[in-house]
Amino acid sequence: MALKATIYKAQLQLSDMDRNVYADHNVIIARHPSEADERMMIRLLAFALNVPADDNKGKLDFAKDLWDVDEPALWHKDYTEQILHWIDVGQPDDKRLMKAAGRAEKVSVYSFASSTPVWWKNIETKLTRASNLVVWQIEAAESQALAKLAERSMQLQVTVQDGTVWMSTAVGSVEITPRRLTAGD
C-alpha cells in the first residue's frame, strides 16, 4: 500500500513591501511522504515570494513535483492553462530547467542545500540560453531554521522588505535573505 500525503494548513499573512503585495492566504500543502519539513517550508516561502497581487491572470498553485516529474513545486497558470511561472525547489538538473524554460514565461528555482554552490557551478554554463530563468540560493542555516517553524496547522506572518524575508509563527521567527545566482529577468 502506497503512503499518502500528509496535509498541512497555513494561514499566511503576507506584507511584501518590495512588490506592494498585501494579502491573507489560506494555504493547503500536501506533503509527500519523502519530503522533509525543510523542503516543504521552502515551497511555502516560494509561494509567499511569488503569489500575484490578484488573480486576474490565474492563481499560483502548489503542484505535484514529487508525484509527477512533469510538474514543478508550484506554478502560476493563466485561465487558458498557459504556464506563466514555473517554480522549482532544490537542485533540478539542467535538462529539466531547459524544458521548463521552453514551457513557461518565467522559471524560478529556490535552492537551499549547502551543496548549492557546487550544483550551480556544474550547470550554470548549460543554462545560458534560458533568459527567463532565475535561480535563488537560500542559505542552509536559514532553511534549516525555517524548517523548525513547520507545524500541521500554522499561522505565519511573512514580511518582505529590501530583499529580506521575515517569517514568524508562535514558535519563533526566521530571517531569510535569498541570494540571486543568475542575471535573468
Score class of each variant (00 low, 15 high):
Lys4His: 09
Ala5Ser: 11
Ile7Tyr: 07
Tyr8His: 13
Leu12Gly: 00
Gln13Arg: 08
Met17His: 08
Met17Glu: 09
Met17Asp: 06
Arg19Phe: 11
Arg19Asp: 10
Val21Arg: 13
Ala23Arg: 15
Asp24His: 10
Val27Phe: 06
Ile29Trp: 15
Arg31Ser: 02
His32Ile: 11
Asp37Gln: 08
Ile42Tyr: 09
Leu45His: 04
Ala46His: 12
Asn50Thr: 07
Asn50Lys: 06
Gly58Trp: 04
Asp61Met: 14
Asp61Arg: 15
Leu66Gln: 12
Trp67Met: 05
Asp70Met: 11
Glu71Phe: 03
Leu74Phe: 03
His76Met: 07
His76Tyr: 04
Lys77Ser: 12
Lys77Cys: 15
Asp78Phe: 06
Asp78Val: 07
Tyr79Trp: 15
Thr80Gly: 10
His85Leu: 14
Gln91Ile: 04
Gln91Cys: 05
Asp94Gly: 13
Arg96Met: 04
Ala101Cys: 14
Arg103Lys: 13
Ala104Cys: 03
Ala104Asp: 00
Glu105Lys: 14
Ser108Leu: 09
Ser111Leu: 09
Pro117Thr: 11
Asn122Gly: 11
Asn122Ile: 05
Asn122Cys: 09
Thr125Pro: 01
Thr125Gln: 12
Lys126Arg: 11
Leu127Ser: 03
Ala130Gly: 00
Ser131His: 07
Val134Lys: 13
Trp136Phe: 13
Trp136Ile: 03
Trp136Val: 02
Ile138Phe: 02
Ala145Pro: 09
Ala147His: 10
Lys148Gly: 06
Leu149Ile: 06
Leu149His: 05
Arg152Leu: 09
Thr159Arg: 10
Val160His: 01
Gln161His: 11
Asp162Ser: 14
Gly163Asn: 12
Trp166Cys: 12
Ser168Cys: 08
Thr169Pro: 00
Ala170Gln: 12
Ala170Pro: 01
Val171Pro: 00
Glu175Asp: 08
Ile176Gln: 03
Ala183Phe: 06
Gly184Ala: 11
Gly184Phe: 00
Asp185Cys: 06
